[in-house]
């Protein structure tokens, strides 16, 4: 029982990260019907941004302030990169065939992966120690330490903020409007381009938060770190129903839990296989995903 609880907590922590990154895939898909393959590299760049900011300012002592500076650097860097990728790589192709944008996305992803290896170096770097990972309390002999609690807490806060933004603000309504009926959205006076750009920024910021949390927990970062988490997050988004925000969160947590149970019960060899297995299964059985539905429209 105690062991099961421990695996569940690990699963929730891994799942939180998948959920944060999956949201970026699903938001962009929702608004542009394209998979932003560069999303996982934006995640990677978030971790490197913190690394270089910390090195530049000599932040290597654990403190609340340093933790917040680190988190904010990841957020700002990812927001800017997300904005730039959309503006310079995807926007010029807005009116062309969807396939062009998809191929461009793969290109941007490769550019960042290998550009990163050239500029940052392919060897793993150690991420600065910005928070002390002490054990806070012990429940049923399961240790709860600072970093795990921060992962739950920051993810939860981000999800609440996103839910509020999307459901209860004019900008969020505009995001949903542009994703369902771009032409009608224009008639409301919505500037579709700026809403699309904003969506990219929000998705990228969530990836940045995820990258910062992961790097805090596993402090080794390298230019290929995005590719590993990106695959899982992409599957999580498809699993939950691509384009559906609660679906991405659900998919992320289910995948995270599944992986941690596999590892915990001795089948860690199949960890990587699980996401592919889920992807194949969901495409065969329920291609719209768990929460996705085919939109029905009344004429």
């Amino acid at each position: 029982m105690q062991e099961f609880l421990q695996h569940t907590l690990n699963g929730l922590s891994t799942g939180s990260i998948y959920a944060l990154v999956a949201l970026g895939y699903t938001m962009v898909y929702g608004i542009l019907q394209m998979i932003n393959f560069a999303h996982s590299e934006i995640y990677m760049l978030g971790a490197f941004a913190v690394y270089y900011v910390a090195r530049f300012f000599g932040l290597n002592t654990p403190s609340t302030l340093n933790f917040i500076i680190g988190l904010l650097s990841a957020i700002v860097a990812c927001g800017l990169v997300g904005f730039a990728v959309e503006r310079f790589a995807y926007k010029p192709l807005r009116k062309t065939d969807k396939l062009n944008v998809l191929i461009t996305a793969i290109g941007v992803s490769i550019l960042f992966q290998f550009g990163g290896q050239i500029i940052f170096g392919a060897d793993p770097k150690s991420f600065p120690d910005l928070i002390e990972n002490t054990e806070l309390f012990n429940f049923l002999e399961i240790p709860f330490n600072v970093v795990d609690l921060l992962i739950y807490g920051v993810t939860f806060a981000s999800l609440i903020a996103l839910t509020y933004l999307v459901n209860y603000t004019q900008r969020g309504r505009a995001m949903r409007a542009v994703s369902t009926k771009p032409d009608a959205a224009k008639l409301m006076g919505i500037n579709n381009d700026s809403i699309i750009s904003f969506t990219f920024v929000v998705g990228s910021v969530l990836a940045g938060i995820g990258a910062f949390l992961v790097a805090t927990k596993y402090p080794k970062i390298d230019p290929m770190m995005g590719a590993r988490i990106g695959m899982g997050a992409f599957v999580a988004a498809v699993f939950g129903g691509i384009g559906n925000l609660p679906g991405a969160v659900l998919g992320g947590y289910l995948l995270g839990l599944g992986e941690c149970y596999l590892i915990g019960y001795g089948a860690s060899t199949f960890r990587e296989a699980l996401s592919f297995f889920i992807l194949i299964l969901i495409l065969l059985v329920k291609p719209n995903g768990l929460l996705g539905k085919t939109a029905k429209e009344k004429i």
Binding site: Q170, R173, A174, R176, A177, T180, K181, D183, A184, A185, L187, M188, G189, I190, A295, K296, E297, K298, I299
Partner: peptide, 26 residues
């Protein structure tokens, strides 16, 4: 000047409330 388009152009997956709110987007 506002246009109410052919085929209504409502947002089918948004609530009535959210549709109305978007009318006042500006």
């Amino acid at each position: 000047i506002t246009l109410c388009p052919e085929g209504r152009g409502i947002f089918p997956n948004l609530t009535v409330h959210d549709n109305l709110m978007l009318g006042a987007y500006l």
